[in-house]
Nucleic acid binder design. Structure first.
Length: 279
DNA sequence: AGCCAGGAAGAAT
DNA sequence: ATTCTTCATGGC
């Protein structure tokens, strides 16, 4: 990929990410929050919304060749003081261990619509297959940017029926994707940003195919709400001894009460730790 | 060969 | 208000 950079004409801008203790690109991408990227020989190729970035390791951090520097600096969340948050939530136990393992994870500021569709697809699914389905949707419906495709517009997503989404391998989620796209087109995308977290969640839950877990992922990754604790099968496993027989939806509420305004960060550190180390 | 995946809907209890 | 069943698909 590095030798091919010169021939990728979409690259318009470049910036550098210095090496710091609280940012690790691989951890940030591999922790399960984002799907449209590939790694090859240590080079990361990431697409987000209509943008693209190539990350190449340097002696002092990362060189980023991308379509929009401002977009990716915001996307990668360099304004948040992760060192302060990490020191606040230390518990000398599981959370501290998870932070020690994943202290370089940032919560990405992803596009709302892309997050909605990505996490509808994610339900009861494997990550490699989630990536493949999203890629096929972008290939077919996304604006051609030359060397890559953008994530499709609502209009493009709504132009296809459930049978088409089934044909590209979405499985039983095909109907959810089609219905959601058409609602976004016909009713407009709700102004979630103006809503408090509970109202935004309730609105998300009104879409067929979005339950508590997907809604909380959208709130966290697509709306930057940290007062949520997406509770999937792995989180349930982590807390099954401490909270026996508590169903995921109720556990999500318990954990938000416990971790408060930093819930989203803690959730991601714990999730990544559990997935990697399987403790 | 089955088992299961960053769950959710609908039915049954 | 809780628990059970079913839902496509394919990587492992």
């Amino acid at each position: 990929m590095p030798s091919g950079n010169a021939r990728l004409f979409f690259i318009l801008e470049r910036f550098f990410i210095p090496q710091t203790p609280t940012f690790d690109l691989k951890q940030t991408l591999d922790c399960g929050q984002v799907f449209r990227y590939v790694e090859s020989d240590g080079v990361f190729d990431l697409k987000a919304g209509g943008e693209r970035a190539i990350f190449t390791k340097t002696d002092s951090g990362w060189q980023v060749d991308c379509t929009d520097v401002g977009f990716f600096q915001k996307y990668l969340d360099f304004d948040t003081k992760y060192d302060i948050i990490q020191s606040k939530v230390q518990d000398k136990g599981l959370v501290s261990s998870a932070i020690e393992h994943g202290k370089g994870v940032h919560i990405l500021r992803q596009d709302l619509v892309e997050t909605v569709f990505s996490f509808i697809i994610s339900q009861n699914n494997h990550i490699p297959r989630i990536k493949a389905i999203i890629e096929r949707i972008c290939d077919a419906l996304g604006e051609d940017k030359g060397d890559y495709k953008a994530f499709p517009t609502v209009e493009a997503l709504a132009s296809k029926d459930a049978d088409w989404y089934a044909s590209i391998g979405a499985g039983y989620r095909a109907e959810y994707l089609s219905l959601t796209a058409k609602r976004f087109r016909d009713e407009g995308v709700p102004n979630f940003q103006s809503m408090d977290t509970d109202t935004a969640r309730a609105t998300l839950l009104s879409y067929k195919g979005i339950g508590r877990k997907v809604a909380d992922c959208v709130l966290l990754f697509g709306l930057g709400r940290m007062d949520v604790f997406p509770t999937d099968t792995w989180i349930v496993k982590i807390f099954k001894d401490e909270y026996p027989k508590v169903p995921a939806e109720k556990l999500a509420k318990v954990l938000v009460e416990r971790f408060g305004e930093h819930s989203g960060y803690v959730q991601q550190w714990l999730f990544y730790y559990k997935r990697e180390k399987k403790v």
